[in-house]
Amino acid sequence: MKMQSFKLRETGLNRFFGPLEARIMEVLWSAEAEMTIKDVQLKLDEDKVMNFNTVMTVMNRLVDKGILSKNAESRSSKYKPVVTRDAFMETQSKELTYDLIEQFGPLAVTHMVDALDKVDPELLDQLEQHIKLLKKDR
């Protein structure tokens, strides 16, 4: 699932989601089981009072976006993420990388390599090893 927007000036999940969507996803990703809207609302209420209908609307929008699945059970529905947090971040980072390279070509690659060296020199070594493996498999 490719997210339709990416907010450059935000951090973490807020780059892909609105603030409430991000909080809801964190609650659901940290849960060990499916949760009802009420369950999520109660978890969110630990921070501040959250309206049930607002939580319901946002969760159903996340279902429509393909981020959550909804399982109807008797009088209430249970929700769970379609993928793990790690799988979501993996997919989004891959999509962003492809988009950057498609739009900016060699400039994007050059800037990524420069950023690796500035952020964590060990990542540059990992990249070098990965490139060697890719070349070997050709």
Rank of each mutant, 00 (worst) to 15 (best):
K118S: 12
V109W: 11
D137E: 06
T110C: 12
K136A: 03
T110Y: 08
H111G: 02
D120I: 09
V119S: 09
P106R: 12
K136S: 00
V109Q: 15
L123W: 01
L116P: 03
K118H: 12
D117S: 14
L127C: 01
D114L: 15
K118A: 13
E128F: 07
A108F: 02
E122Y: 10
V113T: 15
Q129N: 04
D137T: 01
H111S: 07
Q129K: 12
D120P: 06
V119M: 15
E128C: 02
K132F: 00
L123A: 01
K118C: 14
L116E: 05
L127N: 00
P121L: 09
V113W: 13
L107H: 06
K132I: 01
L134T: 03
K132H: 04
K135F: 05
L123F: 10
E128I: 08
Q129T: 08
D114Y: 10
H130V: 02
H130D: 00
L134D: 07
D117N: 12
A108Q: 02
H130P: 00
L127P: 00
L116F: 15
E122P: 02
P121E: 05
V119Q: 05
D117I: 09
K118E: 14
E122L: 14
M112A: 14
V109Y: 07
K118Y: 09
E122K: 08
K118T: 14
V119N: 05
V113Q: 12
D125A: 05
V119T: 05
E122V: 14
A108T: 01
V119A: 12
V119D: 03
K136E: 02
H130Y: 03
H130T: 12
V109A: 13
L107V: 13
L127F: 14
E122H: 09
Q126N: 09
L107M: 13
E128G: 03
K132T: 03
A108H: 00
A115R: 11
L127A: 02
D117H: 14
P121F: 10
K136V: 00
L107G: 07
K136D: 03
Q126L: 04
Q129M: 06
V109M: 15
D125K: 11
K132P: 00
L123Q: 04
L134S: 04
V109H: 12
P106C: 04
K132A: 08
I131P: 02
H111L: 15
D125Q: 07
V119K: 12
D120G: 11
H130I: 02
K118L: 15
E128A: 06
D137C: 01
L127M: 07
Q126C: 07
D125N: 06
K136T: 02
L133V: 01
H111P: 01
P121T: 06
I131V: 08
I131E: 09
L134I: 03
T110P: 01
E128K: 06
V113N: 08
K132S: 05
L123M: 10
K132W: 00
H111F: 13
I131K: 06
H111E: 08
K118V: 14
I131Q: 06
K135A: 07
Q126M: 13
L133Q: 07
A108I: 11
K132L: 04
Q126P: 00
E128S: 10
D125Y: 05
L124R: 09
D114F: 13
K118R: 15
V113K: 14
D117R: 15
P106V: 08
Q126W: 13
L134R: 03
L133G: 04
D114W: 11
L116S: 06
V109I: 15
L107N: 10
V109S: 08
H130E: 09
D125C: 02
Q126I: 10
